[in-house]
Design a protein around this nucleic acid. Structure first.
Length: 116
DNA sequence: AGCCATGCACCG
DNA sequence: CGGTGCATGGCT
């Protein structure tokens, strides 16, 4: 799994992007629990973003993207049910690419459109 | 209000 | 039982 895709939940839209545990284990540098580390993410339009990669501690350890994530969501106008694709850029330890797709209704059909 | 850190609960 | 969605409480 070099990339993951997920439908945004309410948590993802409102506060933080929960990263699939397997992806973080396999493709992201381990971060000390409770510490936040910035990672660089480039979107499809070439814009570079910096997100705080944070690993929760204690009973529910889990990797999330937090600082900066909300701004991304607002800027792209992402909603629950939209999808994002997140993948690592080969050869760059802390560089990732992100793409978003929005659910829109067009002539009664559900259509997925890329967000730039 | 928004960010931060984590507790809780549910589901496969 | 691990993974993850959601809630909450403190702080600014």
């Amino acid at each position: 799994m070099e990339r993951f895709e997920k439908k945004l939940t309410k948590t993802d839209e409102g506060s933080m992007l929960v990263i699939p545990a397997r992806f973080s284990r396999n493709h992201m540098r381990p971060v000390e629990g409770g510490r936040s580390e910035n990672i660089r993410v480039v979107d499809v339009g070439g814009t570079e973003w910096t997100f705080g990669y944070y690993v929760r501690r204690h009973r529910n350890p889990r990797p999330v993207l937090r600082s900066g994530w909300r701004r991304f969501v607002l800027e792209k106008e992402l909603k629950v049910g939209d999808r994002i694709i997140f993948e690592r850029v080969d050869g760059f330890p802390e560089l990732y690419r992100i793409g978003a797709k929005k659910r829109i209704h067009l002539f009664g059909q559900v259509v997925w459109t890329d967000v730039l």
